[in-house]
Each structure stands twice: as structure tokens, then as C-alpha cells.
């Protein structure tokens, strides 16, 4: 394994203005190639290694915000708030298929480590596993309540595969996390992170927050959940950026990080290739990234990003990290 970059070594190498909000990013099978899901209902492609970076429209077949993209089997698989998944062959630049995947907003689309499966989660509270080649449903995983305890619709925000591809985790609005066995579709366990969810029964009578993202450690022993801490005034994303780490074996909470520096959502988490640190990114009116020392259970580096960050994607060695969000795409590389 090549040496893992230190948090301190990352420097911004690109900052691209965009006329849209970018909700999702996936890296392709060629160096520098990235795909973006955006608020204009379109999917874009860019070569971030080019001297002059251009964002080229790949397709505009969705009917709402494109909030998930994954690269598998030679295709960009995109999911949107229209409930559809679209397979687009990038080498031949052609539409492969569109699937009516979910009854409600698709929140996230990820590919399994071997690229054979694609997982999608949506506000119908179902996680679906798809054969990346054929587009057929392989499993439907149901373990999240459709309604919150106060009778409002819940939301299923996050999904991730373990590094060996054998487990899957999903997370929802009220902070429930379910761990699944990919082969059987059975639940292996669940844990709760209720600190991610604020229901205001007195002042405003609605909710905000939720567990937005999950990540397995490379050895599969830890599961990190990201979101936002309790919020006093839920008109704004005023809570502290929050990460809670559980042990996969027993679902016990090991530690909770609430940022002393930044407020807002943690929208994406990913462990370092050796598991030594955890990268969290998100934001509110502005954006931030925070590297957390897993062993010491404390932040190693906390910094601003130029925009509220909805997603990031990294190469396996973390040689490149692409952050996307409100009207910008930012690239970091280790020095």
C-alpha cells in the first residue's frame, strides 16, 4: 500500500465556478475523469486533469435534481429526485436504460467495490441493489420506518458498501443506521444516532437534520455516521457538524465528534485507506472539511471550503479529492 497522505498535506489545486448546485460526484475509469449530478437536472462530465477544465453535459434525461452518481460497468448510473435511475455508457456516450427505481426522491447512488452492484436509497425508505450490467433489481432492503414518530414522512439519506463489498449500511432521518448482508439481504444489525435529528415540538413543529452519510472503516470494524447535532433554531443549519462512530460487531457507539469550529451538515464521510483518519465534509452557509484522528478520537485538521459541500469523491489512494457543492467544484491533492 502506498503511503497514506497526511491531512496536513492536502492543498487546493482547482476551484471551478459552476452555474448550478452539484449534489453528487463520482470518479470514472480514466484518470482525472469525473461525473457530476446537478440541480439543473443534468449529469456532467469533466476531465479535471486537463489544462482547461470544461464541464460537458453528458445527459439531461432526469426530471429533477440529480443527487446520486456512481460509475460501474462502463456506465455512469445517476439517480434523481424524479425517482429514476439512468445508465449512461461513457465510452460510447449513449443512453443505456432508464429505470423507474423508487417511488420518491433518490438520495444516493453508490457502486460496490468490484463494480458489480449499484445501490440506491430513496425516500420510499427502500434500499435497492441493482445488477450494474443488466439494470435488474437484485435485492430490496426494507428496514427503515416510512414515518417519523411524529407522523411526518421520513427520509433515507445515505448508503455505503464495506470495502470487501459484503456489507452495506443505510441511514435515515431519525438517525437509524441499518447494516445489511449484501448476499442474503438480511439485516445484520442496527444502531441509532438520534443526536443527528432535531424535532422541534414547541417552537416550530417540524424537523431538520438526519443521519446523512455512512462509511465503513477499511477493516470493516467501524462504521462512521455523519450529520448535524441538535439545533436550537431549525430555520438554519445551526447545529454543530457531527460524526458518531460505532463498532460494527455490536452496534455500540464508540465516540461522538461535534465540531467546535464548524456548524452545518456532514454530507460525506470516508476513511483513509489505512483507517487512520476520517474525512468529513459538508457545511451550512459556507463549507468545511475536517480530518478526524480515529485512534485519538479528535480532529487533526479543520478548514473551510469555498462552498457548502454536498459530496466528495477520492481516488483509492487519496491522491485526488474532488469536493462538490453550491456553485463550485474544488480539487485537493496532497503536496
Amino acid at each position: 500500500m502506498p503511503p497514506v497522505p497526511t491531512p496536513e498535506s492536502f492543498r487546493q489545486t482547482g476551484d471551478h465556478n459552476r452555474p448550478v448546485i452539484t449534489f453528487a460526484v463520482a470518479l470514472g475509469d480514466r484518470p482525472g475523469r469525473a461525473y457530476f449530478g446537478c440541480s439543473d437536472f443534468k449529469v456532467y462530465e469533466a476531465d479535471l486533469g486537463a489544462a482547461k477544465v470544461e464541464f460537458k453535459e453528458l445527459h439531461g434525461t432526469h426530471g429533477s435534481y440529480v443527487t446520486g452518481v456512481a460509475f460501474a460497468a462502463g456506465c455512469v448510473v445517476s439517480g434523481a429526485y424524479d425517482g429514476k435511475l439512468v445508465w449512461w455508457n461513457t465510452a460510447e456516450n449513449r443512453h443505456v436504460r432508464t429505470v423507474d427505481a423508487h417511488g420518491r426522491w433518490v438520495r444516493k447512488v453508490v457502486a460496490s467495490p468490484d463494480g458489480a452492484l449499484v445501490a440506491s436509497v430513496a425516500d420510499d425508505m427502500v434500499c435497492k441493489l441493482w445488477d450494474a450490467e443488466t439494470g435488474r433489481v437484485v435485492k430490496e432492503l426494507r428496514g427503515h420506518a416510512e414515518r417519523t414518530p411524529t407522523h411526518f414522512p421520513s427520509m433515507l439519506y445515505g448508503v455505503t458498501f464495506s470495502h470487501d463489498g459484503r456489507k452495506l449500511a443505510t441511514c435515515d432521518k431519525v438517525g437509524k443506521v441499518v447494516i445489511w448482508d449484501v448476499a442474503s439481504g438480511n439485516q445484520l444489525g442496527a444502531c441509532e444516532s438520534p443526536g443527528m435529528y432535531t424535532w422541534d415540538p414547541v417552537q416550530r413543529l417540524h424537523s431538520i437534520g438526519g443521519a446523512r452519510t455512512v462509511a465503513f472503516s477499511p477493516d470493516g470494524t467501524l462504521l462512521a455516521v455523519g450529520g448535524i447535532g441538535k439545533i436550537g433554531n431549525i430555520d438554519h443549519l445551526e447545529g454543530k457538524a457531527r460524526v458518531e462512530v460505532f463498532t460494527v460487531a455490536d452496534g455500540r457507539s464508540q465516540w461522538v465528534f461535534e465540531s467546535d469550529r464548524y456548524r452545518g451538515l456532514v454530507n460525506k464521510l470516508q476513511f483513509a485507506p489505512d483507517g487512520s483518519w476520517l474525512l468529513a465534509a459538508g457545511g451550512a452557509g459556507e463549507g468545511q472539511f475536517e480530518f478526524l484522528d480515529v485512534a485519538a478520537k479528535r480532529p487533526k485538521r479543520q478548514d473551510k471550503l469555498t462552498m457548502h459541500t454536498h459530496d466528495f469523491a477520492a481516488t483509492p489512494d487519496f491522491g485526488t479529492v474532488v469536493y462538490v457543492g453550491h456553485n463550485r467544484v474544488v480539487v485537493h491533492k496532497p503536496a
Binding site: 426522491w105 427520509m155 417552537q203 417540524h206 430555520d235 438554519h236
Partner: peptide, 21 residues
């Protein structure tokens, strides 16, 4: 009175929650 719709953050999720009601 049905308060509180002041969605400076997460407007769409707030309305996703409150408009169906």
C-alpha cells in the same frame, strides 16, 4: 396558525415535510 415555515436552511425538506400536511 401553523408555524413555522421559515426555511432559510433545507427549504425543500421543510416543505417536503410540511406541505403534504
Amino acid at each position: 396558525a401553523r408555524a413555522w415555515w421559515d426555511s432559510h436552511g433545507q427549504n425543500f425538506e421543510t416543505h417536503q415535510e410540511m406541505v403534504p400536511e
